[in-house]
Each structure stands twice: as structure tokens, then as C-alpha cells.
Nucleic acid binder design. Structure first.
Length: 190
DNA sequence: ACGCGGATGGCCT
DNA sequence: GGCCATCCGCGTA
């Protein structure tokens, strides 16, 4: 398993649309319960900030959204639909409130552990092909909310670059407001 | 290969 | 009280 050093704070201190595109090919890595699991990021969405109706920042800085307004390179983990966790990488300057949602991974390390954490997955391809699924597979919960992605238990590392020819841009999934904004990036098989 | 609805709980109005 | 940045199982084809 080979990947680079963790992406530094300056990588995230940019427009979330730029960061969302640049994160394709990077490696999300967690170390929970003494076990390392990781995967290549293959799907992302950008949430632009307080002016984006679909972004949690519209509600302002509450207990739930606290870390969304943290410094660039912070993990913002939230609980949704009463049972799932979703993980974001916070972008732009401290206090702004924009982020990139990690929506899918290609499993890399710790696949055996992922299978135990995701017993419903019939194929390895189904281990991390959704924002809630990848958090379950990597053991990501509220415990990682606010973690710094440059070092520690939850990190994102430089990986293989994904060429434009393998990238598709579409509207974001599962939202009702600003539902037509093209802010979802997917690495597609060619 | 689709489409639909229930699960389940925290948070905002 | 209603709305979720979701997932899964069940129905029809």
C-alpha cells in the first residue's frame, strides 16, 4: 500500500470546488481500535458555505456544525437519518463554513476489518460506495469530529492524480435545495 | 434493473 | 412536528 504524506493545511485553504476535484485519487486513512483502514477517494461533493442553501453552514455555528467552521483541514463528522455518519474535509479559512463531503472510496487497507464492520456488503465494491457506508467501514463516528486531517487517527494523503478524462461532474445527491448545482465529482471507469 | 418506503434520532421552527 | 448531504429490503419486470 503506497501513498504520500498527509495533505497540508494549505491544500484545504481554497475554494471547496477546487478541493473536491483535487481530492479524487487521494487516500483517506483511519486508525480506530488499533486497526488501520484506508481507501482511495473516488467521489466528492462541495458545500460552499453560508450562501449555499444545501450547506449546513446556513444554520450558523451550532453545537452540531461547530467544526464545519474550523480551520482548513479539519474533519467535520455529522450524524444523519438517525443512524449514519458522514465525513467532510473543512475548506477555506477558519470560521468560513465550507467543506467537501467524502462520498465514496475504493478500499485499500484493512479490507477484512471493513467486511466485519459492514456485514451487509455482499461485494467488496459495496464496502465504501456511499458516505454512510465508508464511515462505517473506516469506523468514523463523532469521536473523529474536529480531528485534524494532517496528522493523527484520521488523515488524508496524497495519492495518484486522476486525469480530467476520468472525472465526471454532476449535481449533488440527496438534497432538495440548490439541487441542480454541479458540485459533485466522480472518478469513472473508462 | 429499477422504484419505493421504513428505520431511527438529533436538531431547528 | 417535520426535516434530513442515507441505507437496505421488498416489490414489480
Amino acid at each position: 500500500m503506497s501513498y504520500g504524506t498527509p495533505l497540508e493545511s494549505a491544500f484545504y485553504d481554497r475554494d471547496p470546488a477546487i478541493v473536491a476535484r483535487a481530492l479524487l485519487g487521494a487516500v483517506l486513512r483511519s486508525e480506530v481500535d488499533g486497526v488501520v483502514t484506508s481507501g482511495v477517494i473516488i467521489e466528492t461533493e462541495a458545500y460552499l458555505g453560508p450562501h449555499d442553501p444545501a450547506c449546513h453552514a446556513v444554520a450558523g455555528r451550532t453545537a452540531r456544525t461547530w467544526h464545519l467552521f474550523g480551520p482548513p483541514g479539519t474533519a467535520y463528522v455529522y450524524f444523519i437519518y438517525g443512524m449514519h455518519w458522514c465525513v467532510n474535509a473543512v475548506t477555506r479559512e477558519d470560521g468560513y463554513g465550507s467543506a467537501v463531503l467524502i462520498r465514496a472510496l475504493e478500499p485499500l487497507e484493512g479490507v477484512e476489518v471493513m467486511r466485519m464492520r459492514r456485514p451487509k456488503a455482499r461485494r467488496d465494491r459495496e464496502l465504501c460506495n456511499g458516505p454512510g457506508k465508508l464511515c462505517a467501514a473506516l469506523g468514523i463516528t463523532r469521536a473523529q469530529d474536529g480531528a485534524r486531517l494532517q496528522q493523527g487517527v484520521l488523515t488524508i494523503h496524497a495519492g495518484a492524480e486522476v486525469p480530467d478524462a476520468e472525472v465526471e461532474v454532476t449535481p449533488r445527491i440527496g438534497i432538495s435545495k440548490a439541487a441542480d448545482w454541479p458540485l459533485r465529482w466522480v472518478r469513472v471507469r473508462r
